[in-house]
Design a protein around this nucleic acid. Structure first.
Lengths: 230, 230
DNA sequence: GGTAATTTTAAGCCAACTTTAAGTTTTCTT
DNA sequence: AAGAAAACTTAAAGTTGGCTTAAAATTACC
């Protein structure tokens, strides 16, 4: 089972570093965004289990980020913990109405923050799907524990990259991923390869899964998506 | 009968030490995890006969640990005894609904804890699978008591490391273990060796078990798994 | 304390996998 | 319908990871 992951959205470098350090120390996997636009992209790609969101951030402010995350299916359930400066109480109210789950007023103690995070994670936990070990969609089953894939009961043999690619796609059926997202998620965020590499992996996945059912669909100009059931 | 094993999940060091001491004294083999994530990993790897689980632990709290253990096949039967602080009664209710089998309220006497453990183990004993001393899969039988392995009745001579490695693999047929898990489980969690060491042990295991049946399968990019009986 | 057994490291090889590259087809635009 | 852009296909080059062996290091046993 993967580590619980938290996306930190904070433009103040030093505070960001403190948060990163403490959350990592507490055993979470962390991602960091320093502006609102990146926060939305990262949240959609990585599907963190929780988001710590500063209100005052560049490009797109915290409230708008909140609203956009709530508006898209993939992230509408993710708990959001807002960081607000003292005196921005009206913002807190707006924040709640836009879907923030809790807020902490700056300055705050790390201990309190960790506690709030734990509470939020627990409250939300039954809905967690991202960490599921066994997923089936459109007749395809992927098992992270056994590291096996089958179609209608028939085992399908995949290479490691194909496995991770399928795993990424099938976890959000119907969602279109662009090639750079797929590279990040399936090949590793630090991998430096041509985007066309993804095409080749998709090609072999399609070959192995059979192309009749159109399980992996091309989204022209964007990338690919896995077919939704029904 | 091999020793009954108990996984203690407790982040308070001093309480953990007390529990470890008393349970060991009472004749159990103990494992210790100090956070929820590690608890899940250890439970899946070691398959203890019972889990003593504190509710308030870092990373993933007790209730979520409970839920995740119940959700995966390997651990869904393992009895869980929850430790809760006084006043967390609502958590107890949730705990039961998530599959805890009993709870003890802190502070508690060791005597009471031992009694509850005994009750749970007894209640569950016919169903005990994880701690079984004799396992057969795909024609291979491994006996923890006699410390013997046989194939189709023919005795097979294994070294201690080979034995522990096979024991780990065969207890969860089909599950892919990565090399670091195998090092933890078969060579000891504190062993510092190259991952390639596992390859060499696997090689000799395969030689001794015969390679025709593909009993030990390679999972490229991950590690190894034992063949499921089908 | 010496010998045997076991475990671990190390190195070369090979097969499997990944990535690139280049030509071809499809799809969109005008 | 022609041209451009994107995606598809294929094959070959590049890379990685697992296998095998042998030798070194460690541990267990007389």
């Amino acid at each position: 089972m993967a580590k619980t992951s938290i996306l930190i959205v904070e433009d103040d470098r030093s505070l960001a570093r403190v948060l990163e350090y403490n959350l990592t120390n507490a055993g979470y996997e962390t991602y960091l965004s320093t502006d609102g636009q990146d926060a939305i992209n990262t949240a959609r790609l990585k599907l963190p289990d929780l988001i710590v969101l500063d209100l005052m951030i560049p490009v797109i402010d915290g409230l708008e980020v909140c609203r956009q995350l709530r508006a898209s299916e993939a992230t509408c359930q993710t708990p959001i913990l807002m960081l607000t400066a003292k005196g921005e109480e009206s913002d807190q109210l707006v924040g709640f109405s836009l879907g923030a789950d809790d807020y902490v007023v700056k300055p705050f103690s790390v201990k309190i923050l960790l506690e709030r995070i734990k509470v939020l994670l627990r409250r939300n936990s039954p809905a967690r799907q991202s960490g599921t070990d066994l997923i089936t969609c459109s007749g395809v089953t992927i098992d992270r524990i056994k590291h096996r894939v089958s179609m209608e009961g028939q085992a399908v043999d995949l290479t490691p990259s194909e496995f991770r690619l399928l795993d990424t796609l099938i976890r959000q059926p119907g969602r279109a991923f662009d090639r750079s997202e797929l590279i990040d998620a399936a090949l590793g965020a630090d991998t430096l390869v041509l985007e066309r590499t993804i095409d080749v992996h998709i090609r072999s996945l399609r070959k192995k899964l059979g192309e009749e059912n159109k399980l992996i669909q091309t989204v022209r100009g964007i990338g690919y998506r896995f077919r939704e059931s029904s």
